[in-house]
Nucleic acid binder design. Sequence first.
DNA 1: AGCTGTGGCAGGGAGG
DNA 2: CCTCCCTGCCAC
Length: 781
Amino acid sequence: MNTLLYGHDPEECIVDVHQLDECTMRLYTRDAAGVHHRDERFYPFFFLSQRSHLEGFQPRHWIKELEGRAHYRYVCAFESWPALWDAVRFILERHNRTSLTKVDHYASLETISLTPDPVTQYLLQSGKTFFKQMQFSDLHRLQLDIETYSPIPGQFGRASRPGDRIILVALSDNRGWLHLLDGKELTEQQMLATLVELIREKDPDVIEGHNIYEFDLPYILKRCELHQIPFAIGRDGSTPQSPFARGVQERRSIPSVITEVGGRHIIDTLTLVRNYDQSKRNMESHGLKYAAQYFGIVPQNRTYIPSEKISWYWEHDPEPLRRYAMDDVFETRGISEHLSGTYFYLTQMLPMSYSTVLRSGSATKIEHLLLRGYLRQRHSVPRPGEGYQTMGGYTDIFAVGMLEPILHVDIESLYPSIMISKAIRPRSDVLGLFTSLLKELTTLRIQAKRRMMAADDPQEHSRLDATQSSLKILINSFYGYLGYSRGMFNDYASADEVTRSGQEILRQMILSIQSKRGTVIEVDTDGIFFVPSEIVRTEEDERHLVDSLCRELPEGITVALEGRYRKMLSYKKKNYALLDYEGNIRIKGSALTSRSIERFGRNYIRTCVSCLLNGNIAGLHSAYIETRELILNHKLTIRDFAKVESLTDTASEYLQAVEAGKRSRSAAYEIALASDKPLRRGDRVAYYVTGDDPNPRSFDNCKPAAEWDPNFPDENIPYYLRRVDEYSEKFKPFFSARDHHRIFSVDDLFPFSPQEISILDPKLSPNTLSDKEDMNIKTNQ
DNA sequence: AGCTGTGGCAGGGAGG
DNA sequence: CCTCCCTGCCAC
């Protein structure tokens, strides 16, 4: 089983048609009654996107249409290996190809691409790029950034406009090399040719850039095309490719993302930042400048130039622009240094390329591990099961208000621990790889963590930290995979069993804390916030408490003290704020902190929460008054009151849903549709509300944020004042109705005085946990 | 095209 | 007013 984890070398991957005989399958058939029958014979097989590829092919074969498959719709199974080879030759001749090479590993069971793919082939042939036995610091990484010019004032350079061009190419690498190709000295053709030369000469393993997939590379490629210069930067002399540049996408003209080049890896630091923020969720933007500030890697005397002024600077004062470009690549390197190590080490464990590891989700990674095991053992794989998961984590709230002091305990790796200790796994995993993989990875992680603690060398320490955190990501994905509707090995009943056990353990721990005179405040899935009994005074006492909680839980389940806090503001389930002993405040939950709340609202709520946690009643009232004043006097700018929403649907999906009455019109979509830019999935739209109706239908009283003019501010003042009152409503549970009204209202004849106003005692749920459960049972009946 | 899960809160629109 | 439904965002 060990060998499963040391992947990504040629013999572990089904890379080309010569290894096809590693692939076998069982056929499953469904009869009229819907009952599945398993055909006991094994067949050689491959997968096809179109049945027509085999039209006219004589030898006996089965073609079955797959359900729920995106690219490849048919599986073809042959009774014998010679029949398979006949079919392969037949297809090759029909399509005038000399070789078949598969492209991506997700598809390793279902795909033989008819597109020769030198990129992947080269990646797989070049031992260096497997990263086996390599350390992150051994990688030669090169950072690249281009600046573009447009003769039209205030416009960005566009790759396809002949008058526009690339004016600067900034390069750096992790060995300290910095280089600038300058359009004042070189023509664009010369720059592009030199760029190719430089990359080939430097021979990096990895090329990095911020938004390099969707901006720098496509731009460079387009310019190269115009000048008829091959952008042959691959180690095999190939040009960058999109892994999806195959039939279907080309016809639909979906812009393909460039992610692969022969023998090297292309890494977009924008993807790194997005992935990072997906788990942290506290970044304001994913742009290079903000991210560099966020990670504290801004060079001294950093030059900033707004993008619409680039052309002006180039014409009038190019020197700052050169410094700006160099600062960009320097920051790109810093971000990659910070975030890519984890993916690098993951690539050593998964049968995927570096950039695929970066761009794929966690369930895909688990599936690849399982698939590799099945392929090696020449065993058939199941199809995804139908059904749905019915259960999740247990969440509850037992107290609302201000509480102190606070302990936060959490069960370590709850779901993985349950799956290991109860050997919960997909029933379709007949080889039993799921549990052994999970155990193996957990053991490796514990070892890595132990060695990390012991490591003196800071570099060794950070390497081990990256390793263990990448293992953690994998380990935590096993549970999600069970309930994944498209997972070949999914098993909803097993997923329910995991969550059911989790709920049971958490309830047990709540009772345990209550029996020790602790006041439980809020619980969520695997963690509990509570006020310990008064006899728990020292940190020593706290440790004892945690130890005794641990002893009362089942074997294999451990509890850790996750944090200790001075005060907690408990608002609703999954919504609370914490004040630690250093005076820092952490706010959690979509009701209190959310991107969909306007910035002024977030600031206002944060100020109020801070005042509450610090017992500053006067501060609440002045925050209310000041926020109102800002709105009334047009002191806010568009960045403060614009609402930013992201769009999940395409234009046609939205319009259809509205037409069908399935959803109502929404301001964000209407704004996006009205603009001249095409609406894309995931676009973020910033808009504000206009008019003077405090309760407007926002979709016909809204304007794009970009159209707001500070000289003629037309934001809807009554509406935004109403928002302040709505936000103030959130603090109702903390005061008597009278006090709340006094704090959150404008001064009348008598000026506001915080005297005699006090924060209410917390409202404890009158019932114990067991009462609550009784109630639930009653209401269910 | 890609694609781990459930639970929970808030806001907006539509219709009573 | 209220309720229902939908979406977006967030916690874990």
